[in-house]
Amino acid sequence: MDLFELGEMFRHTRIAANKTQQQVAEQSGVTRARISRFETGRLPELGTVKLLSLFEAVGLELFARPIGHGRTLDDVLAEQRTPAVPEIRRRVRVRRSGTGAKTIKKSE
């Protein structure tokens, strides 16, 4: 798991916990701008103390495992106890051409 994936998981968990970036910033001591960059994968590095502080603020834990370690029974049970994170809607902006909207005339 890389920093991008950690940031993505953090974002989903923060939203599920109904917390804003500002609330997490105040609780963790990490700036809101840094949290935003972490969540969007634009943060090149984040120290361990800050990462742990952010995770604690939203109720996540960090586990160290050997690379390639498979899921355990504890993992499966934890997934069953954890409510599913709702799908997040994204806003999409439609770029309009410089000429404006076209009008279509109906013939009578």
Rank of each mutant, 00 (worst) to 15 (best):
F63A: 14
S107R: 12
G41E: 01
H12V: 10
P66G: 09
R90M: 03
T13P: 00
G29H: 03
I104N: 03
F63D: 14
L6D: 00
R42A: 11
V30C: 01
L43G: 07
Q22C: 03
G70M: 06
R65C: 03
H12P: 00
E61M: 07
L54Y: 01
I104D: 04
F10I: 01
E26S: 09
V76S: 02
E61A: 11
L62D: 09
G98E: 15
Q21E: 10
R91G: 07
L52E: 12
R90F: 00
H12E: 15
L6W: 04
A101E: 11
R42V: 04
R34W: 02
L3G: 07
G47R: 11
G41N: 00
T99M: 13
P83N: 00
I67T: 04
R42W: 02
F4Y: 12
D2Y: 01
T13E: 12
M9S: 14
R42S: 12
R90I: 06
F38T: 05
R11D: 01
P44C: 10
G7H: 02
E26W: 01
A64V: 14
G100T: 05
F55H: 06
R71N: 09
L3W: 08
K105I: 14
R37L: 13
I35H: 04
T40P: 00
R91E: 06
R14V: 07
S36I: 05
E61R: 14
T40G: 04
G41H: 00
K105F: 13
T82H: 02
K106C: 08
E87P: 01
L46S: 08
G29L: 07
R42I: 03
F55C: 06
T48G: 12
Q22V: 10
T48K: 10
E26N: 09
V85F: 12
G59C: 06
Q21L: 12
F10S: 01
G59L: 06
R91V: 13
L60G: 04
S36W: 13
E108R: 09
T20D: 02
G47T: 10
K102D: 10
V94M: 08
T103F: 12
P44V: 15
R93G: 06
T103M: 11
I88Q: 13
V94C: 05
S53C: 11
E8V: 07
